[in-house]
Design a protein around this nucleic acid. Structure first.
Lengths: 263, 263
DNA sequence: CTGGAACCCTGACCCAGGGTCAAGGTCAAG
DNA sequence: CTTGACCTTGACCCTGGGTCAGGGTTCCAG
C-alpha cells in the first residue's frame, strides 16, 4: 500500500498534482486508512502514469478524463486531433520565432523587413531620427491593418526617395516641426508639395486607392498631432486644391471657391 | 481620438485585453473625456501593436513591460533569450508529438515501442487479454522508473517466449485466476515454475539484479492482488526454496528448513 | 516515553492572460 | 423618448498546479 508521496514519486509527479487530479476526477479517490490518509494500490501508479503521458503531450486535463474512459477508435481519433493541434502549435511558434528574429533592431518591432529597409535608407540619407520615428509609427499602423500590402507601399516609398525633388521636400520638412503655424515658410512648403503632387499625380494614386478611409483618417490624426504646423499646412493645401494628407485628393474645380471661402 | 474599442480593433486585440494592459502598467492610462471614457491618440495604437508583437511571441507581460522601457542592447539580449526559449519550446512540442504518435493503439499509452511489440506477440500467441493487460500494467510501472532499461528487459522477455517450456507455463497460467487458493493445480504450477527457474537460473538473473528492490516490491504487490492464488503460489515457492516473484532468489540451504517451518 | 522530522489532511490564495457577467452611465439615431 | 450600441468598474471563472497556514499522524532516535 502506497502513500500519496510514494505514488507521486513512482509516477514522477508532485503530491499536489495527484490531489489536483483527484479534484478533477481524473484519478479516483482511493480508500482512506484509519487516520484519513489516502492509501493507493499499484494500479493507481499505472493510471497516474497514463494521465501524465497525455498531460505532458499537452492534452488539457478535462480532455484527458474523457480519453481515459474512451474506446479504442474514439481514442485514436482524439490522438490524431491532438497531433494536428501540436503541429499547428509548432508552426505558430516558428512564426513567432521568425518575427522575434527580426526584432534585434528597435525598429523592426511590429514591422515587416521591407519597412525596416525603408527606414534604414531614410537614416542613411541623413534624415533626422525624429522624422524616421514618425514614419515608423505610421507604418506600424498600416502594417497592423494591411500586412499584405506592405511590399507594395514600400516600393512606392522607395521610388519617392529616388526622386531628387521629393527627397529635397523631405529635407526641407526637417525643420518644420519647430516653426510657428503662421511662419511664412509653411506657405512655401505647401507650394513645393503641390508642385510635387501635380508632377506625379498618377504615381501615388495607386496605393492611396488601396487604403481604407478609416486607416487614412487614423494616419492623418497621427500627422496632425505630430507637429504644430500640420493643421495650417492642410489648410494651405486646401486653398491650393488638394484635400487630406495620407490620401490626397483634388478638390473638384466648381467647389474649389467654396473650399477657399471656408478657409 | 479613439475609443477603447476602436483602439482594440486597430491593434487586433480585445477591449478586455487593453484594460488588462492598463492594469499591468504596459500601456499608460490615457486621458478621459467628460464622461469618463478613455480617449486614445494614434500613438497608443503603435504602442499596443508593439505589446502584441512581444506578447504573441510568448513573452510574459511583466517582461514586456521591462522590454518596452529597455535600451537597445538590453533589448537585443532579451530577444536572443526569447528566441532560445521558443526553440526549446518547439523541441519540447516535437517530442510530445513523437510520443503522441505512438499512442494510436491503446497499449502504447505510457509504454515504449519495444513493450508494445512484446505485448503484441503475447496476443499473437493466443494468450488472453486479461494476462496481456496484467503484463502491460506491470511494464508501465517499470518503464516509468527505468525507461533506459526497457530494451534490455524486453529482449529477456522475448527470449522467454522463444522457449517452449516457458510458453507452456504461461498457457497453463491462463486459467489460474479462476482457481481457489487450495486448488491442487496450484501446487503443480509451482513445481512447473521451479523446474523452469532452475533450468534457466543464469538467464534471468541479469535483469533481476538491475531492478531496485523497491520497484520489485511494487510489482510483487501488483501480482499479489491480481489473482487469488498468488499468495498461495508464493508460499509454495518458498517451500521449494525460492522467495519472491519479480525478483526470485534462492533461499540459502541452511535457512530453508526454517522457511518451510514458517509456511 | 518523549522529541523532532517528515508525512498527511483540508482550505485558501496566487500566477498569467484574459473571458464573461453584472449593474449602471453615455451617446447617437429614429 | 426609446432603443441599441458603447462605455465604466468590479467581481468571479478558467487551467495547472505552487505555496502557505494550521492542524493531525507516523516513525525513528535518544
Amino acid at each position: 500500500m502506497l502513500t500519496i508521496s510514494q505514488l507521486a514519486s513512482y509516477a514522477g509527479v508532485t503530491v499536489r498534482a495527484v490531489r489536483h487530479y483527484h479534484a478533477k476526477g481524473l484519478l479516483p479517490e482511493p480508500e482512506r486508512d484509519h487516520s484519513g490518509y489516502r492509501r493507493y494500490d499499484a494500479h493507481a501508479v499505472v493510471e497516474l502514469v497514463r494521465i501524465r503521458t497525455l498531460a505532458e503531450a499537452g492534452v488539457p486535463l478535462a480532455r484527458v478524463r474523457e480519453l481515459l474512459a474512451a474506446g479504442e477508435q474514439e481514442f485514436s481519433a482524439a490522438v490524431a486531433d491532438i497531433d494536428r493541434r501540436l503541429r499547428a502549435e509548432i508552426r505558430q511558434l516558428q512564426r513567432h520565432r521568425e518575427r522575434i528574429a527580426q526584432l534585434a533592431a528597435g525598429d523592426s518591432l511590429a514591422l515587416p523587413p521591407e519597412v525596416v529597409a525603408y527606414l534604414d535608407r531614410m537614416r542613411a540619407l541623413g534624415l533626422p531620427d525624429r522624422m524616421v520615428e514618425g514614419e515608423r509609427d505610421a507604418w506600424i499602423l498600416v502594417a497592423a491593418q494591411l500586412p499584405e500590402h506592405m511590399p507594395f507601399y514600400m516600393r512606392a516609398k522607395q521610388q519617392q526617395l529616388d526622386d531628387p525633388a521629393t527627397l529635397q521636400f523631405y529635407r526641407d520638412l526637417v525643420h518644420a516641426p519647430d516653426w510657428e503655424p503662421d511662419d511664412p515658410r509653411v506657405a512655401a512648403l505647401s507650394d513645393q508639395l503641390v508642385a510635387l503632387i501635380e508632377a506625379d499625380a498618377e504615381g501615388s494614386e495607386g496605393y492611396q486607392d488601396a487604403m481604407p478611409d478609416e486607416l487614412a483618417q487614423l494616419l492623418d490624426a497621427v500627422f496632425l498631432t505630430s507637429m504644430r504646423i500640420a493643421p495650417r499646412l492642410l489648410e494651405l493645401l486646401e486653398e491650393r486644391g488638394w484635400r487630406g494628407w495620407t490620401k490626397l485628393e483634388r478638390i473638384p474645380t466648381p467647389q474649389r471657391a467654396a473650399a477657399v471661402g471656408r478657409a
